[in-house]
Design a protein around this nucleic acid. Structure first.
Lengths: 253, 253
DNA sequence: AATGTTGATTGATCTATATCAAATATTTAT
DNA sequence: ATAAATATTTGATATAGATCAATCAACATT
């Protein structure tokens, strides 16, 4: 269970009153008034330290969580004790959607670094959705988006080679580091190699090997936690993903 | 695009006025009145023949689809022309949730056999959700459930051996054939071996081999399309899934 | 600074599963 | 019914990536 009940006890980052929610949930525009109402139900929490849990498997589901800064991993614990990373969540992303269905969280969420989190009580959000159709639509959209994201990962796990997986992973991460505008050319891996390996269904050694290989080829530059993407186009080729220019060409060779 | 605009042109199965929706969406109970309103927005369609599309990648998203009888596969078409099965949908299940987010379907859905489908215009459903909180909650729940399901598949694809995948697949299928009550001991595989292989991230040959192996071991009996599960417990062992009695034992060896 | 601990890299094998190839079986078309 | 096309099974071989093992680098503790 989350053990901090002290809300708004710190003052930093107050500026962003919507906890980055505006970036995820509200692009289609609510009135300032509606924004205010939404804002009023969102709780700021004391930042989580590296390794701290946001929620645990089996916790009663009450809220969604929005990552303001930092990053989070979600993972399931198999019946045989094994742990399996199901996702990484960066600044501006939403957490805990799996819990809506069964009223308790299925899976754990843990901070990968010092991480600022907002809590959005789901009952209140849902009630608010009754009054503000736009908001309800946005919540639907966030859920649907998650489904789409996961299908992408299924594809990745089901049919892609280890190299393709790593390339996809890096590209996706880069694009998520700059949601708006362009993908980051340089960013930090907040998660360990073994987290990455686990998430991608690979062995740590394989991840490491491919990181060094791609670095030697000059396509990226991965040093410890720092990733720099030198040749995005080449990386996309490896990932078998279309070039952003080649956009919607479908019926080609 | 779906090309049949003739609604309610046939009379069979009229009895089930909610298109099985009651099983998925409404266990928590709406008033008969609310049920009626919901019913009024649902459109019955002419049954789809084997191979017919329910929707295609890129189609504008207008509706969710509920499978009344028969079965459907959903699949994505990669930029390289490859096709990847993302799911199977049996009677009583809902289709098209991925479309909510981007207003167009991402992926295709095709009938695996003669299949009866209901169409639920999403705008109307969403509007109805504004008035009926219970309904809105249920839609949230369906979406969240889909997320949970997909995480299960991610686990399967990421960490399980071919034998574990097949065993899991069969168990899940069996349990879905009898949503209420017990899992079916016997059922029909409406999808081809290669669909199964594709879905599970395996080669057709591997699927075939494991089917025959499991049959020789007497655990199941798979003949052509007919599956009979003789030893569910053994199958669960192979799948590394907890026995239904061993229910929620977590802190054991 | 020295020492221990944990995480990352690199190399050497081994194996599960893909791939290739061919034989049956089943469905569809003529 | 017969033939052609397609799907499934079975066997032989190849290989991507896991596993095992050792070293190396980073960080924490005394």
């Amino acid at each position: 269970m989350t053990n901090d009940t002290n809300v708004t006890q710190f003052t930093q980052k107050r500026d962003c009153s919507l906890c980055n929610l505006s970036e995820i949930c509200l692009p289609e525009g609510l009135t300032p008034d509606e924004m205010g109402t939404l804002d009023s139900i969102i709780k700021r929490r004391k930042p989580k330290q590296k390794g701290e849990f946001i929620f645990r498997d089996g916790d009663t589901f009450t809220s969604l969580y929005a990552v303001r800064s930092g990053s989070v991993k979600t993972f399931a614990t198999g019946n045989d004790g094994s742990t399996m990373v199901t996702g990484f969540h960066l600044s501006g992303e939403i957490l805990g959607l799996e819990g809506i269905n069964c009223k308790q969280h299925v899976g754990n969420a843990k901070a990968l670094e010092t991480t600022s989190i907002c809590e959005i009580p789901f009952n209140q959000l849902s009630a608010l959705g009754q009054d503000i159709p736009k908001l309800q639509q946005q919540v639907f959209r966030v859920l649907s988006n998650e489904i789409g994201q996961e299908q992408q990962v299924m594809l990745l796990l089901g049919k892609k080679s280890s190299e393709e997986r790593i390339a996809s992973f890096l590209l996706r991460l880069a694009s998520r580091y700059h949601t708006r505008g362009f993908a980051a050319k340089e960013f930090n891996l907040s998660m360990s190699r073994s987290d990455i390996a686990n998430y991608l269904g690979l062995a740590v050694e394989t991840v490491s090997r491919i990181f060094t290989r791609l670095t030697k080829q000059g396509i990226v530059n991965i040093n410890r936690k720092l990733v720099m993407i030198n040749d995005e186009s080449a990386l996309r080729d490896i990932a078998n993903e279309p070039q952003p220019d080649t956009d919607k060409k479908r019926t080609n060779s």
